[in-house]
Computed example of a mutant assay.
Amino acid sequence: MIDKPLRVVLAEDSVILRDGMVELLGARGCTVVATAGTAPELIAAVAEHRPDVAVVDIRMPPTHTDEGIRAAVEIRAGTPEVGILVFSQHVETAWAARLLADGAAGIGYLLKERVARTSEFVDALHRVAEGGTALDPDVVTRLMRGGQRTRVGTLTPREREVLELMAQGHSNRSIAARLVVSERAVEKHVAAVFAKFDLPATDADNRRVKAVLTYLAESR
């Protein structure tokens, strides 16, 4: 069975960069179903095409401040099934926190100057489209400012290995396959991570997201 190409809406106000990204993504097997140069165009394109993932620049016309990420928050609220990958030169902490407020599943935030390879970017797109996360450690550090930075050091090597795979967006089943252990064993390691990070169960149960954020912040 042939995998369906990833359907992408691309929001970038620089025409040259936008056209270049369309070509690069096309060469990597993605289908850019629409492009947008402004936040309203982005919102309209997502509503019309319902892509697997929307790539969003933060600063877009007319003010070039935070129109893009405001639009991302609006898209997240209205169509949570659409993955969001913020791709920018800037970190807007307040808006990033709002974007992640209901969990990091299906959310990415990468900094342009830190993405060295096209394959890395496309891998992040697929991860986000599948409900995983792709967060640059610098973004995470700013979101976690003032937090403890020693909890990862309390983990066993296997617990840290499991957490690292969690941070890459893998499910417990996927982690078990990669480590050649049972899914039950992975669940025990994950539970140990939660305990060591002091993350009790809640109704929302976003402990997995918090554990990953802690790992990324402390592993810079």
Rank of each mutant, 00 (worst) to 15 (best):
I175V: 13
L10E: 05
L17V: 15
G108Y: 02
R117E: 15
A54D: 02
L10F: 08
R160E: 15
H189Q: 14
V32L: 10
D136M: 06
Y215I: 05
G153T: 14
T35C: 12
L111C: 00
T65N: 09
T79Q: 09
K4S: 15
T65V: 10
F121C: 02
N206Q: 12
A176S: 10
E74C: 00
A45G: 06
A71K: 02
D123R: 11
P61G: 07
L17C: 11
V53E: 09
T35Y: 09
R142C: 11
A192W: 02
A211R: 02
P5E: 05
R76E: 01
L110H: 04
A27F: 04
V53A: 11
L216R: 14
M144I: 08
M21E: 09
I2N: 05
S219R: 15
K112Q: 07
A192T: 06
T141L: 14
P40W: 12
L25S: 12
V180C: 03
R142M: 15
V22L: 08
A191W: 07
F197C: 09
I175K: 05
A104P: 00
K210Q: 12
L143P: 02
G103T: 04
V55W: 05
I58R: 05
L111M: 06
Y109E: 01
E130H: 11
R173A: 14
I58Y: 01
H49N: 15
H90F: 10
A211G: 09
L135P: 01
G37L: 10
A11L: 12
R59T: 03
L24R: 13
G131M: 03
A176V: 08
L99Q: 01
V86H: 03
P157N: 11
D198T: 06
G108K: 01
A27M: 07
A47D: 14
Y215K: 07
R7Q: 15
P51Q: 08
V86G: 01
I107R: 03
K4W: 00
V115Y: 01
T214V: 13
E120V: 07
